[in-house]
Each structure stands twice: as C-alpha cells, then as structure tokens.
Amino acid sequence: MSTSTLELLPEEGLEPGFAAQVASYPGGEKIRRCIQCGTCSGSCQMSADMDYTPRRILAMVRAGMKKEVLSSQAIWYCAACYYCTARCPMGIKLTEVMFALKSLALKEGYVSLKQHSPAFYKSFYEVVERYGRMHEASLIIGLALKTNPLDFVGLAPFGLNMFRKGKIEILPHGVKNRQEIKALVQQVQRLEVR
C-alpha cells in the first residue's frame, strides 16, 4: 500500500489524556515503552478473534483513541493468561492494562450491561461484594437478569448435572464478616476516584 492511500488519524476524535489515564492504573506505568514488536499479539491465543490485536490496542491507547478502545470487543476476549506479560521484551504488563481497560469501559459507560461479557464481570463483582466469596448460582441469576434470561436456558441441563455431582451450592456460604468486605469495597471506591 502506498502512503498516499493511508488514512490519516483525525485529530479531533482523540483524547490526548487517555494514555496518562491508563498509565495511572495498576501495572499501566510502562505503556510508553512499547516498541510495537507484536510479541503480545503473536502470543495471544485470542488475537484472531479480536477486532484489534493487543499490539494495536496498545498503540491506540497511546494515540488517544479512547472511544475506539473502550468500545472495542478486543478487551473482552482477554482471558488473563499472562502470555503477553511474560513475554513482553519491554516489561509491559499488558494483562493488567487489559483489566484497566475493561474497568474503564464499565465505569465510563462505554459498554452496555446487556452484553454478556460486561454483565458477567459486573455480576461476579456484585456477588463477591455481597457475600465475600463466589456463589455460582447467584452469579448466573445476576447475569441472566442483566442480559436476557432466555440466553441462559441452555445452561439448565449443565447446571442440573453440576447439582447432581454435588458441585453447586444452593445457598451462598459467604464470609462471616460481611461488614468488613463491604467496608473494603467502600474504601476502594474512595481510593479509586481519579
């Protein structure tokens, strides 16, 4: 492709502060060191399913393409396997950056909780916030109510099998000191204001 056919990035849509915002998240401090080598994309088992590969996501973060990144599907395909982090020659914690991007997309309303991925993580968070531990039945109910309960009818036989195997608890067995968990969640919410 000759350079004359390359589209220029329209500057008006960019958010120059986005890179700094992401860099302020846990593990985000080294994103400016990226040399665009593509080791992350080559290591990621989900690259082919993503609308932007991990290398591109990082370039887009640095370019300030906030809307495109936080509305992308790519970030929801990260399973947090840490291959990219383990292999990055520049020491960038890309898995942690992906957590930051998911968190930002949820917090700033770039995704709808009608979508399965955001709804799943949010429901997971809510179960842990309430009980201090995971409770799968509450998680699936929370997820179904946020999205479309009909999407989860297909899970019923699997759930029933899990129950028969003694692998599903009907009632949650959370931590005893739930007030302490609630207080920690509140502390974190206060500390996260930025």
Binding site: P26, F124, V128, G132, R133, L184
Partner: peptide
C-alpha cells in the same frame, strides 16, 4: 479463618484495585 474470594478475573475486570485489596486481606 474467614477467608474471602481472591477476586480472580471477575472482580479485577471491574476494579483492578479491589482484587488486590481482597487478596491482601
């Protein structure tokens, strides 16, 4: 005694800080 969830990918995707705090507890 009275341990809590580590946060795993579920909590970390909503709040990267909360899972570190829950694990630290």
């Amino acid at each position: 005694p009275d341990w809590n969830c580590c946060g795993t990918t579920g909590v970390t995707s909503v709040s990267p800080l909360l899972s570190a705090v829950l694990s630290a507890r």
